[in-house]
Nucleic acid binder design. Structure first.
Lengths: 253, 253
DNA sequence: CGGTCCGTTGACGGGAATCAAGGAAGGTGG
DNA sequence: CCACCTTCCTTGATTCCCGTCAACGGACCG
């Protein structure tokens, strides 16, 4: 897993709250410099985890939220039957652990897919801050709501019955998020396995493998193990909506 | 849509915040009687909508959260292609509109499936209250997080590749929620159409129709139009996990 | 009473799951 | 450094579930 991906990006490791994904949730609320310092000092608590490590497990008591500083995580839920479902992949700047707010216990497990650096935000500390900083609470609500919307768009993706559409949407979404990180949007390095992708999309691994091959044959992608080169973003975009032909009305009521 | 379902339940219409689903989010935080009165008076704003009416539409500016007092809603999201995806059905005591917190605009539309009474909680008013009532903010976070977890379980449902499992899970979940409303858990009256159910589960109508017939043949249900009688809850439970046989490992990484 | 939408059923075909096998990569221990 | 093993990924053959197309009865509504 610690293969050909770029060596540790020091500049990324040094990013403080100022450059963090969480910041957008503070600044618009009119947080001043002093308040930002306070926030920054609260999240100093960082840790680095190796591939395969667990940030938290389903059922663990809740005591902190986490922000990915570098690397990638996946969140997985396991139901009574032992069947697993991948809920999401989390890139730098994205938050993890929000589902634990509901019942004071994590509803999913977070596993590290490649060496990652994580910011830990102890919730007790966060509560103190929200009491002092007006607007931070509102921003916190915004974050959680945003996570819910992300989950909804996952539902929309799985609502497509063509597996190819699902994979196309997944790749496009990943590309967009890479763009937000100022990475090359046409050169994706997938930290997750084909199994993870398949499970995330609700198909089997063979289907994902075949679809990669098909997309390669169509000249949309070039696939080489973990590296996906998007040759035709336009075609990829077309494949996201109704696999090439008529619209699926999706009539309801 | 306003067919054989029970006539308007007056006792239900009279329920105040005390008996409302939202209350559980206030009480544990140690809200006292006076505070409860204040909260109650803020949500006095109720409205009744007829079947087919829209509570809000995708894109509408956010200004309130809503709680279903009686009746049923569905939330639907429409993507760029015009394809629709049903995100959920909302029974009395359940909250709607939380997805608008993220971007100050509703990300989905809420349609009324049968005559419904809705409590409106103007967000401006809610913000005032949260400033005054300690703990209410925490409870609000809890609500939103809970909605996210609900969305996650929808993902888990759609992750099952057997359509029968999905329908079984849907029915069991609906039965459980009926139980929470002190309704008969074996006698479901479905306010939503087969199209809605199909779309919600990511299958086509014909599949839902056939599955109802099959489940009836298996002696699990009795189906009569909108009325579903669960004859064998135990069998229904079995059908939720791995359609009858081996476990689907769902291995991932 | 005609129109429209809803729900069911049948026939058919396609797309994806299943079963099976083999190669490539990565990690470990000798 | 190589042998060995495990895991990952791919490809092929086959099966079958479910989506598609089509037709029809029933409910609801103007």
């Amino acid at each position: 897993m610690t293969q050909a991906s770029a060596p540790i990006d020091l500049s990324q490791l040094r990013r403080s709250c100022r450059a963090c994904g969480l910041l957008e949730l503070c600044l618009p609320a009119g947080i001043d410099q002093a308040e930002l310092e306070r926030l920054d000092s609260s999240v100093r608590d960082k840790r680095t985890l190796e591939s395969g490590g667990m940030l938290f497990r389903q059922g663990d008591p809740f005591h902190a939220l986490y922000v990915v500083r570098s690397g990638t995580l996946k969140t997985v839920v396991q139901d009574a039957d032992g069947a697993q479902q991948v809920l999401g992949f989390h890139l730098p700047g994205e938050i993890v652990g929000v589902d634990a707010l509901a019942h004071d216990a994590h509803q999913s497990s977070a596993e590290v897919l490649e060496r990652s650096s994580i910011c830990e935000l102890p919730y007790s500390r966060l509560e103190e801050l929200t009491a002092q900083i007006p607007g931070l609470q509102r921003q916190l609500l915004r974050i959680v709501s945003r996570e819910m919307v992300a989950e909804q768009s996952h539902v929309v993706t799985m609502g497509r019955q063509q597996a190819q559409e699902r994979l196309a949407i997944f790749l496009r979404s990943l590309s967009e998020r890479y763009g937000r990180l100022a990475r090359d949007t046409t050169h994706l390095i997938l930290p997750m396995s084909r199994y993870d992708i398949a499970n995330y999309l609700g198909v089997v691994v063979e289907t994902v493998s075949r679809l990669f091959t098909r997309m390669e044959d169509l000249g949309v992608l070039r696939v080489s193990r973990k590296v996906i080169h998007i040759l035709r973003p336009d075609l990829l975009g077309e494949m996201c909506g109704a696999g090439g032909a008529r619209e699926r009305a999706g009539r309801a009521s």
